[in-house]
């Protein structure tokens, strides 16, 4: 007797959830819809599905608005930084979790102490360093300041590796393995979930980051997507359709990666939000 009522309740529940999600994500649906319209259609008002999808908006945006260049730069910069951070943080995380050396706890304490300091504080001095090195408008200027990782990444890997039982290392040591081999053959495979979490969190953060690339690139050569797109606002007449095409190209890669690596994103958020 109770079953049908229960079923109705269930269906209602999912209807509500997906209705909320539809409204919540509607701005992104609208963005995609606009990116496929002609300018006439854009101004004609409310219609979700374009008469005939204009994919040329994407090629126009890539070519005429330099988005192709920005996209390549963004891939290069975000990719290199992610690579460097994962490598450097996994090395340091291993040392802080497993090796004993004088000053270890003090250094780690310093790391944690600076995690609270707003990024703006280091902005100007870092810019001065990059300026002195002649790295303004260069790949090095965009990448090097973030390449060696940060306290968050090292903290994440350390916490994870601390949970790895000692016997594994000892077994490797008995086999005559050195520290480098233990790190690369024992620790890295064990730490795969933590490494993936760090990688996706870093990738998204760097792909989307605005402030640093904004101050360190003036010429178009090394501009990334965020900087290039932000300049669109200043155009006298805005072509909303090609602009939305550029916007889709800036967001879609990270959304695809989100769906491919859901678990690691959730873990990353939980780590940054639940760790005290």
């Amino acid at each position: 007797m109770k079953k049908p009522l229960h079923l109705v309740g269930e269906v209602c529940f999912y209807l509500i959830i997906f209705a909320i999600l539809f409204v919540y994500l509607f701005p992104l649906i609208w963005q995609f819809s606009t990116s496929l319209k002609t300018m006439d259609e854009v101004f004609r008002g409310f219609s979700l599905i374009p008469n005939k999808p204009i994919w040329e908006n994407y090629t126009i945006s890539l070519r005429d608005f330099n988005v192709g260049r920005y996209l390549l730069n963004t891939i290069l910069v975000a990719g290199l930084i992610t690579l460097g951070q994962v490598l450097s943080c996994s090395m340091a995380g291993y040392a802080f979790a497993k090796l004993r050396f004088p000053g270890r706890d003090f250094i780690f304490f310093l790391y944690l102490g600076t995690m609270m300091i707003p990024a703006t504080v280091t902005l100007i001095p870092t810019y001065v360093i990059v300026l002195e090195l002649g790295w303004v408008d260069s790949l090095a200027g965009l990448v090097i300041p973030f390449f060696f990782g940060n306290a968050f990444g090292t903290f994440l890997i350390r916490q994870f590796l601390q949970g790895v039982p000692r016997d594994l290392e000892e077994a490797a040591e008995i086999d005559g393995a050195g520290y480098f081999v233990i790190w690369s053959r024992v620790m890295l495979p064990m730490a795969k979930p933590a490494l993936a979490t760090l990688a996706v969190m870093t990738l998204v953060q760097q792909w989307n980051s605005l402030v640093w690339p904004l101050i360190v690139t003036q010429a178009d050569t090394w501009k990334v997507l965020s900087v290039g797109l932000a300049a669109f606002r200043l155009f006298r007449t805005i072509q909303w359709n090609t602009m939305m095409a550029a916007v889709v190209m800036a967001t879609l890669p990270m959304i695809v990666i989100l769906f491919l690596a859901q678990r690691f994103f959730i873990q990353g958020i939980q780590f940054s939000g639940l760790n005290r």
């Binding site: 701005p27 998204v204 989307n208 965020s226 990270m254």
Partner: peptide
């Protein structure tokens, strides 16, 4: 996960 600048423009 969407770029703030892109979200802002949308």
């Amino acid at each position: 996960v969407s770029m703030a600048v892109a979200v802002g423009l949308t």
